[in-house]
Amino acid sequence: MSKVNSIISYTVLVIASIVSIFPFLWMIVSSTNRSADVTQGRLLPGSHFFDNLRNLLDTVDLVPALMNSAKISIFTTVLALLIASLAGYGFEIFQSKAKDIVFNILLLSMMIPFAALMVPLFRMFGKISPVAPFLGIDTLTAVVLPTVTTAFLIFFFRQSTKMFPKDILEAGRIDGLNELGIFFRIYVPTMKTTYAAGAIITFMASWNSYLWPLVVLQSPENQTIPLLISNLGSSYSPDFGVIMTAIVIATLPSALIFFIMQKHFVAGMMGSVK
């Protein structure tokens, strides 16, 4: 690499890194400053984080919102992994022409924009509400159900199953395990990394989802974290320190997952193009 080229490379990469990181730094710094300091453009860390946190806890129901988001995300992740891995396994191990056609039809659902689904889904859950209030409008179940099965995750598991050593399955059959036994005792433990990657993408998508919860959840006690932040952000007299504290807390789970499991994180993302 010539000297000029390398100077240009480093300059571009340093600028790109600063631009990428700056909003994070600003968010973290602002969460430690008073609102007035933030408006003045203060870029140095202050000592008001705990004041902001106390104000945040006083003004909004942060903990219930965190609990709602956690319930929805964990429930979605567990169910999504179960349903999608069973299907991905079924499509790959018991492959047939008819199943491939079904598979391709299911993949078409990835093209459907959620905006087109929200009105019919809202009316569907509206009709369920009087009959079964526990899964109608304004319940956490209604948030989970429509988003729990995605063609993407089925596709992801099918792709990963291609690498699976199929001879082991035969060994399991000879040992007298039934088909579900083979799946849970042999396939699941072997595919741990695939499950980890799948869990990360599903959890993140669920933790951060906004539009469907906005549509289907109505009462304040069912609010999730993105809804809470959106409400804080649209207030007329925003307290910047408090809002940034809320965003720091909301971003923490994703950031932790990213830094602890960076490899699985990227593997999950790349799953679609293996």
């Binding site: 349903i83 499509f91 018991f94 459907i112 019919p120 569907m124 099965t149 089925i154």
Partner: peptide, 30 residues
């Protein structure tokens, strides 16, 4: 195997039909 294979797929297929394809038809009617 055919029966077993389909049973692995059923839940996922039904969920996608119920929460993607059926609403799309509803949207068309709407």
């Amino acid at each position: 195997n055919a029966v077993v294979g389909w049973s692995f797929i059923t839940v996922a297929a039904l969920m996608i039909v119920l929460f993607y394809f059926y609403p799309m038809i509803q949207a068309l009617l709407l």
